[in-house]
Structures are given as C-alpha cells and as structure tokens.
Write a protein that binds this DNA or RNA. Sequence first.
DNA 1: CGGACGATTTTCT
DNA 2: GAAAATCGTCCGA
Length: 290
Amino acid sequence: MPVRGAAQLSRRLGQKKRLLEAEEPGSDLHGAPTPSPTEPRLGRPASLGPQRSLYFSSSKSCSARLGSEFFDQPAVALAQAFLGQVLVRRLDDGTELRGRIVETEAYVGPEDEAAHSRGGRQTPRNRGMFMKPGTLYVYVIYGMYFCMNVSSRGDGACVLLRALEPLGGLETMRQLRSALRKGTAGRALKDRELCSGPSKLCQALAIDKSFDQRDLAADTAVWMERSALGASEPAVVAAARVGIGQAGEWAQKPLRFYVRGSPWVSVVDRAAEQSTQSGPLASVCSHEAF
DNA sequence: CGGACGATTTTCT
DNA sequence: GAAAATCGTCCGA
C-alpha cells in the first residue's frame, strides 16, 4: 500500500476549503487569526443584545432557547432531558441547521471509569468537562473526527450527543458530510446517514474543535431549543454505552439513552429494549421552566 | 521525546 | 464482519 500522497491530501483539503468557502463566506470562525488552543470562547456580547431581543420578540415559547438553568442538572438527568430537544447550528452565512436529539450518553464524573475525567484527571483537552453546565466539550477522536459533549452539573460530568433526527438544512448537512469522504464523491448520503453517530453529527453541523469550551446557553453559532418528546414517543431506552470496551462495571451501566423506535439512532440494543421499562419521562415532558 | 491509544467511520472482503 | 484511516493527546522514560 503506497503512502498517501501529498497530492491526494491537498486535493482533499482543497475540497473542504472550497465547501467551507461556499457555505460560510467571510467566515470569522475559520479565518480568525491563530487563536490559542485553550482560549475560551464565551460568546459575543456585542452581537448578543440585538439578536436576543429580536429573537424574543419574534418567537414563541415552544421554540425558546434553553438557558443555563436547564443544563444545571446531573448528567443522567440531563442526558434524558436532552432527548427531543432541538440542536441548532447557525453557519456564518446565516444558514440554520437543526436536528432533534434522539440519542445521548451520560459520563457521570471522576468515578466513571469510562469518562475522560476518570480518577479526577483534568487536562487541557477535557477542561470543558469541569466548566459550568452548558459548556461544550469537543474533542478529536481517531485523529480525524470530533465528538460533542455538554458539561452537566457535577465536576467532570457531561453528556455526549450521539444522534440527531435532521430537521432543517439537510442538503447543507449532506454536503458537509460528503466533503471529507474518500474517492469519487460517491452516492448521495441517505438522510439516515447524516447524523446517526457522534462524529457524523459533528460533521453534519460543522462542529469542530473551535467549539470546545463554548457556552451553549450564550453562543451565537450553536444553541438548543426546547421541544419535548411527543406523546406518541413516550419510551426511552437505557442501554450500555458504545465504544468504551466491555470490561468493568462502568462499561455495563445503562448510561446511553435513546428514543425507542427512532430510525435516527446510531446503534439499537434489542436486549436493552427488552429489559428497559416503557414509560414517559416525566422530567422531559414537564414544563417547570415556564 | 516516543509510543500507544482511542466515547468512530468508512471501505473492503 | 474485519481492517484501515489518521493524529491529537496522554503517559512513561
């Protein structure tokens, strides 16, 4: 097997560059002058004011942006509460990409042997896990993909977003997902292939390392909107988490949650579905915030 | 400073 | 189903 040529690499990078230029002309995200890797991004107060007032005056409460108080709950509760909510990504050209969260995983903190924060390890990479609830923790996996987490209540605790039901901007998602794929630009991806995995959804929403440590409650390019599960989908499955090995008690714990029967979930666990009790999640359906 | 390893996805057999 | 792709991060020397 010949070593991957520089020509091929640059061609692929060129593809991505072209796409990003098309999607986000005059991007200030990708064109920012060499930010420090650990530089915190805490939103843009200058543009937040006008946008927020416009937002509140033109939107109904059912699509209200979720604030800091929502994210301030323990990881398991937050992982369940995320199901049904809508993740929104606004590209620099104004395009809004939307997806309904259908699968999450809870990483409960230093005692969780499968968490990056296990044993209380705190490094520059996982700092977001220790920041205030609602802070994003985005990290690189396998040298080429990203995973997106939201910090929850509890030091070193967070929730991994694993799958979305794409709701808006599907064609842009398809382009973003296809851009880095190998070979002949291939066939068009099916809708189900857009966001059915933690790194797929990051690709589809153009979430990269520059989103690490941003505040999901305040950022202008990414946020979450309230949209609880409907009565027709009352059941949530609790299953073992994916990709963390089989060994140890923490690998077995049912800390992955997904909407039963949803075709948008990345991995279904039939055995877990047998043993998971059906029933509405009261916390998801409640309206205590309003 | 070097080696091993991923909270994955894609491609090939 | 198996194996490759691909490199930031972490840890031990």
